[in-house]
């Protein structure tokens, strides 16, 4: 290929386009399959972008800075999770205590079980520390893993990976667990799989989405506070 065209293909413009086209393809698939659980738009988008930078031999760091324009909006979108919660605030009545207790106990369970399962199966300490924070939303997972001495970008990959898995299987799992209160369903998914899980719940039902956003936020708080404490015992 001509050098100037190859440069164009590696430019932020082209990399942004590939990412958006991958995402649109994912949305198209989601619509075509009638919202099938497996058809989460994030998957084809990551696949298309990962394939493109591998073929074009673009550094991940270069891709990351090229797509900062997209990643930037995660912050304001997280702030916006207050909106469904505001619209569903009446449903907080009689649920505040169960909600707070459940999120704190759940956060401790997530952290301790991830570390212990990895340890039993022979992971080294750096990997255990990287796994500890994966239930938290990516910015929290990155910051906490850094402080612990794990691998921050890998922690983000774990967090996103479990978010995708959860977006696919969480509603069916909640049915198996016979959790039928929409508030508890949303809360549980948000607490263990942050924004990606919350996005699936927002599609399912506004109450579930609202409580998933709340679960994500409170879980981020609880994990931030618990990780330094539990680290004293675990490592």
């Amino acid at each position: 290929m001509r050098d100037d065209l190859l440069d164009l293909a590696r430019s932020p413009l082209a990399l942004l386009l590939v990412t958006l086209v991958g995402y649109q393809a994912g949305r198209w698939l989601q619509a075509r399959t009638g919202g099938h659980a497996l058809a989460q738009p994030v998957l084809p988008a990551i696949g298309a972008a990962a394939l493109a930078i591998t073929v074009l031999d673009v550094d991940y760091a270069a891709y990351r800075s090229a797509t900062e324009l997209i990643a930037f909006w995660l912050g304001p979108a997280t702030v916006a999770l207050a909106i469904p919660l505001h619209r569903q605030a009446d449903r907080l009545k009689g649920f505040v205590v169960p909600l707070l207790v459940a999120v704190v106990v759940g956060a401790a369970t997530s952290i301790v079980s991830a570390v212990l399962i990895a340890r039993v199966l022979g992971a080294d300490e750096v990997l255990e520390k990287t796994l500890a924070t994966k239930a938290a939303t990516t910015p929290v997972a990155i910051a906490l893993t850094d402080a612990l001495g794990g691998i921050p970008p890998l922690a983000a990959v774990f967090a996103i990976g479990i978010g995708i898995v959860s977006a696919v299987v969480a509603p069916a799992t909640l049915n198996l667990l016979r959790i039928r209160d929409r508030r508890a369903r949303g809360l549980a998914v948000g607490a263990v799989s942050h924004g990606i899980g919350a996005s699936r719940m927002l599609r399912e039902d506004e109450t579930e989405g609202a409580f998933a956003g709340l679960g994500m936020g409170l879980s981020a708080l609880a994990i931030s506070l618990l990780v330094p404490l539990l680290a004293l015992v675990l490592f």
Binding site: G22, A45, I53, A77, T138, A156, S199
Partner: peptide, 15 residues
């Protein structure tokens, strides 16, 4: 919301 996670998720290629 899912779109905004894509740039971080592509980090999977490094690992």
């Amino acid at each position: 919301l899912q779109l905004f996670f894509v740039p971080a998720g592509v980090g999977v290629v490094v690992y």
